[in-house]
Structure formats: C-alpha cells, structure tokens
C-alpha cells in the first residue's frame, strides 16, 4: 500500500541568477511498513529530496514543481499551519550530525518533550514520563538522568539515540533518516542501525533511509532508489539491485565496495566526480563517467522505463549492463 508518493519533484536553488537543479524530476513510492533506501554519492540530491518532503528547504532553495502525496493530500499545497502539524508528528526526521543537531542550551529531555507538547494535548508532567519511556525504548542508560542532561554531556551515539527518541515521540508513520550513522564510530553505527530496524518493526513504521553505503542498504532495506545527479537512475527491490543491477552507475557503486578475498590490490572507483548541479552535461547526466556511453547518451536524456515488474532503470544501454562482481 502506498503511504507516500513523490511525483516529478523538482527542487532548485537559485543564486546570482544561476539555477542549481539539486533535484530534477524525482518520483518514487514509499510503501507502508517498508525501509526504502535512497543511495548515491554526495551531492546527488538525496538530502534535498528528504528535506523537500518535510518542506524544510532553506533559502534560496525552492520546490519548483511536483507533488508529494501523503494521506490523499499533496503536502506541497498545504498551508504552513497544516504542514507544521505533520512535521515531527506524522513524518519525522533524524539527521547526519548528532553532534550539532541538538540545541546546546536546552536539556535533552526538554527538547524531546517539546515535540510532544507541540502536537499532543498533554501536560508537562505527562510529557516528562513519556520522554523517559522513549529514552528507555531507544536504549539510553539511566533515562531519568539523561532527561536533565545537556547534549554536550553525551557521546555522539547517545545524542543520535536522543534524536531518534525525539523523532519517535509522536508516533510518526514515516521516519526519514538522513545518513544517521555516517558521523558515528563503526561499532556504534551497527547499534543505531539495529535500533532503527527494531523500532521500525515494532511500530510498523515506514523508513526512508538515506545512505551512500551499500553495506547499510543490504543490511536494512526492502527496496532501493539509486540517485545520480538530481535524478533517479534505478529503482528496484534490494535483491534485484544486488543480483541484477541494470544501470552502469549502480554497478559502479557496487563494484566500489572493497572485497576482502579480491586478488587485486587497488580499490575499484567510478572515474570522475558528480557534476555541479548548475552545469549538468547534456543527455544522460552520467555519460561522462560511463563506460558504455555513446552518441545517443550524449544527446538524449533517458527516461525511467520498467524493464521487469518493480524494476525501473533510466539508461539507453541497460541491456548491455552485466554485473561482473560475482563472476
């Protein structure tokens, strides 16, 4: 069942008359109770897509076009008050930097309770006991003490748990996690991912998990959206993405995962870098870095086409793409 549907989303940033198309015609569907991975290199528009859903794009960014359908309504047409009633309440978000995402001058408990008091009709006392319950649920030791602790007194992993507690406070149906573990130690990363997965199951939430790590995708996700340079290039369930990827960018990302039993000494990389959002190449945005690129790729933009049920790809040469990693 579709819980959230993004249709042709375009989010542009304009500075000094130069338009940067950070997100340009992105569409995908989030099902109820699934974890949807959103993967791509830095600068591909993953975070901007996520922030667009909550309409938290900061100036000079603007959502130029598109629809975001949630509960039979388009989020982009809601007035400010109605949008606020959804933020933190039905759709919540956690961020990449737990160190700076909490306000340094308020206690952790205060900041989580604030979300409850904003959306639910409860007293401060009830909010406090609920927050302590949430802290216990996200595995924080000594929740009563952490309620009155300031963010700088906690480690990065603990702060991210506080952020998760804040996001879960009002029982949202969608949790957007924007690289929630990138800034954490490896051991803590695994704990946080496990926590998100457990909470997603227990609460039957849908999660949009933004990451640049295919290891995380394999571990966590049901379906995967691969983004490159403002566009969705491939969309399929997680098994298909790993077994039968059909976009050269997807295979490039998969090949760049280091393998322990590999004979070769160098790491596989995709040559080149993500183009600047104000100067995309003509045709397919990926053609400058693509080993299959031909004249058609240079001149014509490929559309997303469904090559098998539930598997879409935007590439002219998808039939030639063979994933060689497992060979």
């Amino acid at each position: 069942m579709n819980l959230l549907e993004i249709k042709n989303l375009k989010t542009y940033f304009e500075k000094n008359r130069v338009i940067s198309k950070a997100v340009d015609g992105v569409s995908f569907v989030l099902h109820k109770g699934e974890i949807l991975g959103l993967i791509g290199e830095s600068g591909c528009g993953k975070s901007v897509t996520a922030l667009s859903i909550l309409r938290l794009i900061a100036e000079p960014g603007k959502i130029a076009e598109g629809e975001i359908i949630f509960e039979d309504g388009d989020l982009l047409t809601l007035n400010t008050e109605k949008m606020r009633a959804i933020r933190g309440n039905q759709i919540a978000m956690i961020f990449q930097e737990p160190m700076t995402s909490l306000n340094p001058v308020f206690t952790c408990g205060n900041q989580v309770a604030e979300a409850l008091l904003e959306h639910k009709k409860i007293t401060a006392g009830e909010a406090q006991s609920q927050v302590i319950g949430l802290f216990r649920e996200v595995g924080l030791p000594d929740p009563e003490q952490i309620f009155s602790a300031y963010p700088h007194e906690l480690s990065g992993g603990m702060r991210q748990r506080v952020m998760i507690a804040m996001a879960l406070a009002c029982g949202p149906s969608i949790l957007i996690a924007d690289e929630p573990t990138t800034a954490l130690d490896v051991t803590v990363q695994a704990q946080i991912l496990e926590l998100i997965k457990r909470l997603q199951k227990e609460r039957a939430m849908s999660v949009i998990l933004i990451t640049h790590d295919f290891g995380v995708v394999a571990e966590m996700c049901d379906r995967v959206v691969v983004m490159y340079a403002s566009k969705v290039v491939e969309f399929a369930d997680v098994k298909t993405i790993f077994k039968n990827p059909r976009h050269p960018y997807t295979t490039g990302l998969l090949n760049s995962i280091p393998k322990i039993d590999s004979v070769q000494q160098t790491l596989n990389t995709i040559p080149g870098i993500v183009p600047d959002a104000s100067h995309y190449p003509s045709g397919c945005h990926f053609h400058l870095r693509c080993f299959l690129a031909n004249d058609r790729c240079k001149n014509e933009k490929p559309d997303l086409i469904e090559i098998e049920p539930g598997h879409t790809v935007a590439c002219w040469e998808w039939e030639k793409v063979v994933h060689t990693r497992e060979r």
């Binding site: 400010t80 306000n103 952020m163």
Partner: peptide, 16 residues
C-alpha cells in the same frame, strides 16, 4: 539560524 539544531527545531513542527 543556519545551525543544524534550528533545522531540527523546524523538523519538530515548531512554529517559526
């Protein structure tokens, strides 16, 4: 106002 915690406050649904 460009700090991360301000974005967090907005994401909570607080009024401007």
């Amino acid at each position: 106002i460009k700090q991360d915690y301000i974005r967090t406050a907005r994401a909570k649904g607080l009024s401007e």
